[in-house]
Design a protein around this nucleic acid. Structure first.
Length: 591
DNA sequence: GGGTCCCAACGCC
DNA sequence: TTCCAGGCGTTGGGACCC
């Protein structure tokens, strides 16, 4: 029962004496809620392993199926090729955050230093010898290394050093893919084909350039694809270079005895599952791929299988837009409704600010909480309009809170907005919609079909909830599709009061529409400049005004787009936050 | 039975 | 002294709909 639950892996460069470290960590954390939660998770993993083992046992009893599966795998092995046409390099700055800090505090060079406070971001190699590592809580790190010196994060500093690092690398591959501030993958094929330089000499020179420019060291790995290059960069860390020759045999030899845990994408849990089934090194997967095929889903199987054979992506993928923006905060446990709502207001404020600064709007909101027992829950809501306004986000967030029926203390609350769109584009579309409707009106035809997102219903996943699948009333099509506070408030009240039957709803829509028709004003407020226009019932006057406004607005939008383009062009030297975030994705290594 | 949505789980830095 | 983060991504199972 007292089996250590903290799955410590000493595979980070510089960590030694894993057993002692494991014991200290375990002693420091035993009895905490976190510890209990980890124990539960460990049990779940063990159950999963048992279930998989039973599946495997059944599979092995069925000789025919076993024969078929083995043949299938053999054919699969014959089908693929380890492509060694391209030359990739992975550069990784050594202990990046700490290294940046030590530039300003060279007197700490030989002392154990960590960046971060409650959680360690990075530790130097002196601290790593004590077992201190990234993502470790500060108090545990202090137990392991009482003399540990903590330095708070200074991201501006890291970003500026990172810019220099990336600028140097972009000379060799301007499309380089960065994963965070301190790592980048380069496809050196073209550069080497043109220059005929030896990859080892080239990469050593690049490392020297990085050191000259930043006074910091970087490690590098070279191989025929991104995954191999990344794995190779770990071999001679810190301040080293490792090259995997461009032949299939070299790749296979390099991977043969490599622990599966090293494969990017295989984390703590997957490692536990695999090791529970006696898959420990890549060779195990190659030798018993049929077993892996039986117990894992096709996608997971393919990923692990191909990775262990050294097959991974060896070309750049197109940049994808950011999918979500979120904000979450941890705090001392809170338990009252009032406190929950205050937190939502606070988080919504930060989220809205972030969205506005990135000129994004979104229409899918998720509330995430972590209970004081470290259990994570989430609920989401499909909005029928885009928003990036804090008050609206908070209103929807509070609805999600009600749906969640929280009845225990929480230690974290977060809001995530997804289904993102560009704020200006949405405004532009709204204007076009408005303009189209004016034309339809003047021709006597009312267009009731929502042109942007009107057909989508609110959906709330909890099927037992009475407010499920509510079709919210369509908004007045003559307004931009970004909700006002009053509208959001009205919608939220309808959610709560259960105005959700379709017939009721369509009646209500009809009534609203009739009311609007009856109340058709002789003057009109322009949706673009917001001025009151006395059109005296004459659409031509109104249309002319709007036409002028739209032209002006479009010029502004176009100018802004243009300036954005120019910015993104010139910022090649500075990887944007979005770029680095998107490129961090696990998909990075996949085909 | 396929498509879609929700959400928990997992992984990365 | 501090008592396990934050922000992003993907995958897969379950439920529901057509």
């Amino acid at each position: 029962m007292n089996e250590p639950i903290f799955h410590y892996y000493g595979n980070k460069a510089g960590v030694e004496g894993a057993d002692q470290v494991k014991q200290v960590i375990d002693d420091a954390t035993r009895g905490s809620e976190y510890y209990k939660r980890q124990q539960e998770k460990r049990q779940q993993v063990l159950q999963k392993v048992n279930k998989m083992q039973m599946e495997l046992d059944n599979y092995k009893k069925n000789e025919l199926k076993m024969k078929e599966t083995k043949e299938f795998i053999q054919n699969k092995v014959k089908e693929f090729q380890i492509n060694t046409d391209r030359i990739w390099a992975h550069f990784d700055m050594d202990m990046f955050y700490v290294a940046c800090e030590l530039l300003d505090k060279p007197e700490l060079k030989d002392k154990p230093v960590a960046v971060g406070q409650s959680i360690i971001s990075t530790a130097n190699y002196v601290a790593r010898k004590y077992g201190v590592r990234s993502a470790m809580p500060g108090f545990v790190a202090k137990k392991l290394c009482p003399d540990l010196i903590f330095i708070p994060c200074h991201f501006e500093k890291y970003r500026s050093v990172s810019n220099i690092f990336m600028t140097i690398l972009k000379k060799y591959d301007e499309n380089l893919e960065s994963m965070g501030l301190d790592e980048a993958n380069l496809d050196l094929t073209e550069y080497i084909n043109n220059s005929q330089e030896d990859p080892a000499i080239l990469c050593e020179n690049i490392r020297k350039d990085i050191f000259l420019a930043t006074q910091l060291t970087a490690s590098c790995g070279v191989g025929p694809n991104k995954m191999i290059a990344k794995l190779a960069s770990e071999i001679n860390k810190p301040n080293g270079l490792h090259i995997v020759e461009q032949t299939p045999l070299a790749v296979l030899n390099f991977l043969e005895k490599l622990p599966i845990r090293k494969i990017p994408g295989i984390g703590n849990i997957t490692e536990q599952i695999l090791s529970g089934l006696n898959f420990n090194i890549c060779k195990d997967v190659r030798d018993r791929a049929d077993e892996l095929y039986v117990i894992f889903t096709p996608k997971t199987f393919e990923y692990i299988f191909y990775s262990c054979w050294g097959v991974s992506r060896n070309y750049h993928v197109e940049f994808e837009d950011q999918h979500s923006i979120s904000c979450q905060r941890t705090f001392s446990s809170i338990s009252t409704q009032r406190e929950f709502e205050d937190k939502i207001d606070y988080i919504a404020e930060i989220l809205a600010e972030e969205m506005q600064s990135e000129e994004k709007v979104g229409n899918h909101l998720t509330l995430i909480i972590k209970t004081s027992k470290f259990e994570i829950r989430s609920k989401s809501l499909q909005l029928n309009q885009y928003t990036n306004q804090s008050k609206q986000i908070a209103i929807y967030g509070k609805q999600l809170l009600k749906i969640m029926q929280l009845d225990e203390p929480i230690r974290l609350l977060g809001l995530k907005m997804s289904s993102l769109a560009n704020e200006k584009q949405i405004q532009k579309q709204s204007i076009s919609t408005y303009f189209k409707r004016q034309i339809d009106k003047s021709s006597g035809q009312e267009n009731l079909v929502p042109s942007i997102k009107g057909s989508k219903s609110h959906q709330i996943s909890d099927e037992n909830d009475s407010i499920n699948k509510i079709q919210l009333p369509q908004q007045d099509q003559s307004k931009p599709d970004i909700l006002s506070d009053d509208e959001a408030s009205s919608i939220s009240n309808q959610i709560l009061s259960g105005v959700n039957s379709k017939s009721h709803q369509s009646q209500q829509q009809q009534q609203q529409y009739q009311q609007k028709q009856q109340a058709q004003p002789k003057s009109f407020r322009c949706p673009i400049c917001n001025k009151e226009i006395d059109c005296k019932g004459n659409n031509t006057v109104l249309n002319k005004h709007i036409d002028r406004c739209i032209t002006q607005q479009n010029v502004i939008v176009e100018q802004s787009d243009e300036s954005n383009r120019n910015y993104s062009g010139s910022k090649n030297k500075v990887p944007s936050k979005i770029e680095s975030k998107a490129q961090k994705s696990l998909n990075f290594f996949k085909k």
